[in-house]
Simulated assay, not measured.
Amino acid sequence: MSNNFLELIQNRRTIYAIGKNVKHDAVYLTGLIQNAIKQSPSSFNSQSSRAVILFGAQHEKFWNIVKDKLKSYAKDEESAAKTSAKMDSFIAGAGTVLFFEDMNVIQGLQENFPSYADNFPVWAEHSTAIAQFAVWTALHTDGLGASLQHYNPIVDEQVHAEWDIPQNWKLRAQLVFGSVEAPAAEKSYMSDADRFKVFQ
């Protein structure tokens, strides 16, 4: 079966070895990221996803914040060094997209549609996941590598203060990206029989 979209998402992989050798400038990449999020579906067309896009020194500042925060969680010098090296691999990239969900939008939906109130926070997680996947795939199609990270909520307070983020924006994930400096490892798949059921 040949399908261009399936080929794109099959080739989109987690790339940890990233660099700053990116052919596109920040203006182009900002437009790409923004459009990918705008075109991502959301429940009730809520458009609750928000993003902060960091390049250059601002990108590095974010990962240094994470790096400093994680020092207090290290069990020993060896684990601290390992964590520090991991953060340095992210700093080596070209940029980071911080994904948020606007809780005011979600709360407004809960008030306007009380029958679905319990579902809106769940659907918001669906929305941000789709937006993350769309951006990740869009970056891949332009030859960039990326990996999705989750250092929230340990850095939430500092992130909100550093970049003047509205308090109603809830940090959900961080997509760090850059040039592909080494390919991803081989990916294995579980048996279709264990994963899918088809009835006709």
Rank of each mutant, 00 (worst) to 15 (best):
6 L>D: 06
13 R>A: 06
16 Y>H: 14
27 V>Y: 11
30 T>P: 04
31 G>D: 09
36 A>P: 04
37 I>F: 10
40 S>L: 12
41 P>E: 08
47 Q>Y: 05
47 Q>K: 09
52 V>T: 09
53 I>S: 11
56 G>S: 03
58 Q>N: 14
59 H>R: 05
67 K>H: 10
70 L>N: 01
80 A>D: 11
83 T>K: 03
86 K>L: 13
90 F>Y: 14
90 F>N: 04
92 A>K: 02
95 G>I: 02
96 T>E: 04
97 V>K: 09
100 F>H: 01
105 V>F: 01
108 G>H: 03
108 G>F: 03
108 G>W: 01
109 L>Y: 01
115 S>W: 06
121 P>Y: 13
121 P>H: 14
124 A>T: 08
125 E>G: 12
127 S>H: 11
127 S>L: 02
129 A>N: 09
129 A>V: 00
129 A>D: 05
131 A>R: 07
140 H>V: 04
141 T>Q: 15
144 L>A: 03
150 H>W: 04
151 Y>M: 02
152 N>Q: 10
154 I>C: 05
155 V>C: 01
162 E>A: 06
163 W>G: 13
169 W>P: 00
170 K>A: 08
174 Q>P: 08
175 L>G: 00
175 L>E: 07
180 V>A: 03
182 A>S: 13
186 E>I: 05
187 K>Q: 13
191 S>T: 14
192 D>G: 05
193 A>V: 14
196 F>W: 13
196 F>R: 12
198 V>P: 08
200 Q>S: 10
